[in-house]
Amino acid sequence: MFMTRKATQWLFILCMTLPFGTAATFAAEPAAGKAIGYVMKAEGDASVIVDGKAQPATVGMPVFVGSSIKTAANGALGVTLEDNTLMSFGPNSQLSFDAFVYQPSEQNLKLSAKITHGTLNYISGVIAKLKPEAVEINTPTGTIGVRGTHFLVKVDG
């Protein structure tokens, strides 16, 4: 899609004014959400969960604050966030995107995610560079603070 911010706003306004039945066509994009990143790689059984609904992951699928990703035993998935953070996952993984704010000019920056199971390959982006303390990757038993870097996490029950 070829769109400027303004066009996106217009589309949003358009969606809001359309009759209810027609608006359902746009249901893939939750009203409150702006995409924080996109699926850039997907393999096997991998899905993105938005508003509690799991959809098979495909390249270009948006992720939002509140979204989760999930992979099965044969699945893998890679996501690139708006601030250039890369996160990719091996089999049997689950992670939720809990907070994401990227407004560098206002110094509003935050990235928080929680991996409850599986493996994560993480390469930090602009948020970690500008404000390292604004990034945290949580696990059930620990918190990883990022000082601008590449790391791997494994969480196993």
Partner: peptide, 22 residues
């Protein structure tokens, strides 16, 4: 079973992580 390991960054540098557990 559960751990985090620091890797060299794509630009050849190595950063740091701070890990909090019990």
């Amino acid at each position: 079973k559960s751990y985090v390991v620091l890797m060299e960054s794509p630009d050849g540098t190595t950063g740091a992580i701070v890990v909090e557990t019990a």
